[in-house]
Design a protein around this nucleic acid. Sequence first.
DNA 1: GTGGTCTAGACCACT
DNA 2: GTGGTCTAGACCACG
Lengths: 127, 127, 127, 127
Amino acid sequence: MFNIDPRDPRALYEQIIDHIKEQVIKGTLKPGDQVPSVRQLASMLTINANTVMKAYNELERQQLIETIRGKGTFIAQLPEKAINESQLISIQKELKSSCLALHYMGLSKEDVLEEVSQIYEDLLREE
Amino acid sequence: MFNIDPRDPRALYEQIIDHIKEQVIKGTLKPGDQVPSVRQLASMLTINANTVMKAYNELERQQLIETIRGKGTFIAQLPEKAINESQLISIQKELKSSCLALHYMGLSKEDVLEEVSQIYEDLLREE
Amino acid sequence: MFNIDPRDPRALYEQIIDHIKEQVIKGTLKPGDQVPSVRQLASMLTINANTVMKAYNELERQQLIETIRGKGTFIAQLPEKAINESQLISIQKELKSSCLALHYMGLSKEDVLEEVSQIYEDLLREE
Amino acid sequence: MFNIDPRDPRALYEQIIDHIKEQVIKGTLKPGDQVPSVRQLASMLTINANTVMKAYNELERQQLIETIRGKGTFIAQLPEKAINESQLISIQKELKSSCLALHYMGLSKEDVLEEVSQIYEDLLREE
DNA sequence: GTGGTCTAGACCACT
DNA sequence: GTGGTCTAGACCACG
């Protein structure tokens, strides 16, 4: 259910962030749902609590989750969708990087568009 | 002509790699063309020669450039296009990460497909 | 236990690569085993950490070791055995070079075959 | 007839050395035969004369060729076969390096012995 | 001139 | 603690 992989190129905390974002988009996690506590999740994944904390802090900064003192951590009501210009540019550069790498692995523009479509189909299937 | 940006999330040497890959795809650099020497490029970008060397080494590993001892570094004749399964999976994960981030910035599936299309139009314009 | 020799014709980082390959073949290092950290090995060999890093990077490229961020470096599970044609040709040329040199040192074909056999006996002794 | 390849892992001057050693072993070049002058060979191979000079100097040091002032350069009468201990050890290390690399390309001890045998058959065919 | 190796030391990200 | 990036500068081999 929770794939955390030390060999993944993404940092562990990023994998957690991505996983929760994914669950929210898929609808598996809905606004108001409680997410595991830092310690719970850390022991579930057998990783360090600081790593989970870092993921939660980042998610809270992005207003995707809310921590209510004494009660726990919950999926936020209104995931803010604000475009941050410099962040957008960064991600565009990452996208371009990925495209260049895929090009040299023999994938065409159409192949890459298909890859992206596939990602969205996986994400939106359960919505 | 050569944008190297210390604020870019990518490492300096990765920016060089991407830039040269891009030039080759665009056709600005053709097989057999000499690329700037390690020291030349380093002084052009006002970065350290070792950083350029690292980029060139990586490009040589990917068989995009060839080094001829004492003479210089050249665009390779046959850019190999071999799919490495584990590498492909890594990049797919990066793509997914980018999509998730873009989703929370308010971009739809169609917006992202458009972004990717745009990247390819920029790359293939001059080809 | 770890022979690093500045008078060896091989670069320091190559000696490290060869040594680890040897340990893995001999079975002294097994899949999953942790290898010394970059800094540890550097101080053990009284060489610079960057030199060890270069060796480890090369070994990782060859999929002999795996790096897990923040945790350390480990012998990989599945040492890939993929023949790269151009690499094979390079090594054949090196072999030929060695044979020519040995010929002029008075060694016959049989002597050289014996040398090679000896190398393999040393490698496979403990397996 | 003379294969000199800038992409070869061996230095140009080493390729020349190997080539001449090979011709002598094969019997194509016999003691007393004249070899091309430095300038001739340099222009034949379209490389720098200093590179040829370096090869010839090394061959002369190894007593494989003799330069007779004003007449030219000739294959020596008695190629000395003296074992230099430290040199032998160096070449043994190179051999081991090659074996390790070949092992990780999937070649067995027998495969490598066969490779070496093949090299000698090529060398001694015309003898 | 070219690339390649190595050092010493700083700084960062991740766990 | 771990590895990774980057710098500055030395020295070597090759052409």
